[in-house]
Design a protein around this nucleic acid. Sequence first.
DNA 1: GTCGCTGCAAAGTATTTGCATAGCC
DNA 2: GGCTATGCAAATACTTTGCAGCGAC
Lengths: 145, 145
Amino acid sequence: MSGIVETALADALRSRGGRVTPQRLAIARIIGERDAHVTAEEIFGAVTERLPGVSMPTVYATLELLEELGHIARVPTGSGPVLFDTRADQHDHMICRGCGDVIDLDAPINRRRLFAAASSHGFSAECAQVVVQGLCATCAATNQR
Amino acid sequence: MSGIVETALADALRSRGGRVTPQRLAIARIIGERDAHVTAEEIFGAVTERLPGVSMPTVYATLELLEELGHIARVPTGSGPVLFDTRADQHDHMICRGCGDVIDLDAPINRRRLFAAASSHGFSAECAQVVVQGLCATCAATNQR
DNA sequence: GTCGCTGCAAAGTATTTGCATAGCC
DNA sequence: GGCTATGCAAATACTTTGCAGCGAC
């Protein structure tokens, strides 16, 4: 199941002259198993369980690598620790200002028009995503401010 | 000119039982004079020039206060220090992955549809903005990666 | 055997907290 | 005069860097 992810990673690594190490495979596997948003800290905890001894710098380096390879994406949260999205395709997010939860959203927007607008400012757009801020169902019910 | 900002702030503060202090006014004034994106550090530097002795905790507290009052907004950058936008109305941003520059954009999107989409997930949307990632004109010309 | 990756430690950057004092209302 | 905001200092959180040794290729 998640073996596909590792194979793809191994191929990508080899073709760029990189190395396939157990640490990288373990982190990629964990990424593949999650369908949500994770912090470097969470990855560190999860990878330590199955491959003790992995260090934070390695986690950060691998996350950066996976981002470059397009396997994960950074979620623009506006504050707090960097969040990585294990879903790499273009989609959007809702961020609750009550509990800080980040929820996936497929927003009804025209990315082509968006990219065109960016181009007219001389900007070479690579990806675009919407960030909606507000209150999630739970926090709204709890009547947060 | 920027006196308006301070008056509005003073009124808002008084009506919520807050205090109108020189520190808050100075920071509000600086915000009013800038039309770009600033870090807490930059505000600290600018405010220190005209009102020496202001401390970082005060800067952070005041920025948070101004955010609550809707005078400034946080820019979801995805990494690095928190950026505040001195333009409080709903608009969007392009972030250059080469130089990290943040550029304003008024994206052609239908916020009503966006909010409706969020609602259908039980999310109470308050604001929405698009984050476009890519290369700015300068970095694209320099042929970054 | 080579060169990239890892682990360790440490530093660097960004932000928040606790508490006594000052000053706005 | 009461109560909030400030300043200072320190702590905390997060991320990056430098370097020596290991291990993938």
